[in-house]
């Protein structure tokens, strides 16, 4: 099985990928307006303030939507789900759901999820999600 396409961190996103390497899901919050946002950038997309900070998120979220891809991908065994996770802190991120059958019956919208960290290389660890409390 081929390697997944891996991200190339930039100076603005480095803290996020350093976080996943260390087993933390990091988000950013604006001091000026309290907006919590993702993907990373060194300013607030809501109010344009540069006064923002990085914090460790809870790693909890819910399954907001997904598709189950049935076409062959060199790095996956189809069918597999591509999910949008609504994080407890507010932002939405794309990920995969692990420790769960990749079926409409098992993937129930709004089910609680928790982050797990999947090391790909020495530099890149991906944040994936599993049903909260372990496999159903």
């Amino acid at each position: 099985m081929a390697q997944r396409p891996l991200p190339r961190p930039t100076p603005e996103t480095d803290h996020f990928w350093a976080g996943t390497r260390d087993g933390e899901l990091r988000l950013q919050k604006c001091h000026a307006c309290s907006h919590v946002y993702f993907p990373p950038r060194p300013f607030c997309p809501e109010c344009s303030s540069r006064d923002v900070h990085v914090f460790r998120a809870s790693g909890r979220g819910t399954l907001e939507s997904y598709v189950i891809n049935h076409r062959p991908h060199p790095a996956w065994t189809a069918p597999y789900a591509i999910a949008l996770v609504k994080l407890a802190e507010g932002p939405r991120m794309m990920s995969n759901i692990v420790d769960c059958p990749q079926t409409p019956e098992a993937l129930v919208l709004d089910m609680p999820l928790e982050v797990v960290f999947d090391k790909q290389t020495d530099e890149i660890t991906l944040p994936l999600f599993r049903p909260a409390g372990g496999a159903p």
Binding site: R4, P7, P9, P39, W76, M94, N96, Q120
Partner: peptide, 29 residues
Amino acid sequence: PSPASFGGQFEAPFGVMGPPTMFTVPVLR
């Protein structure tokens, strides 16, 4: 798309394969 773009960093690693796996994701919601 560059692996340094938002798409390269925050979607490509999760198995998207063009529009049929991206444009479609909102509809279950």
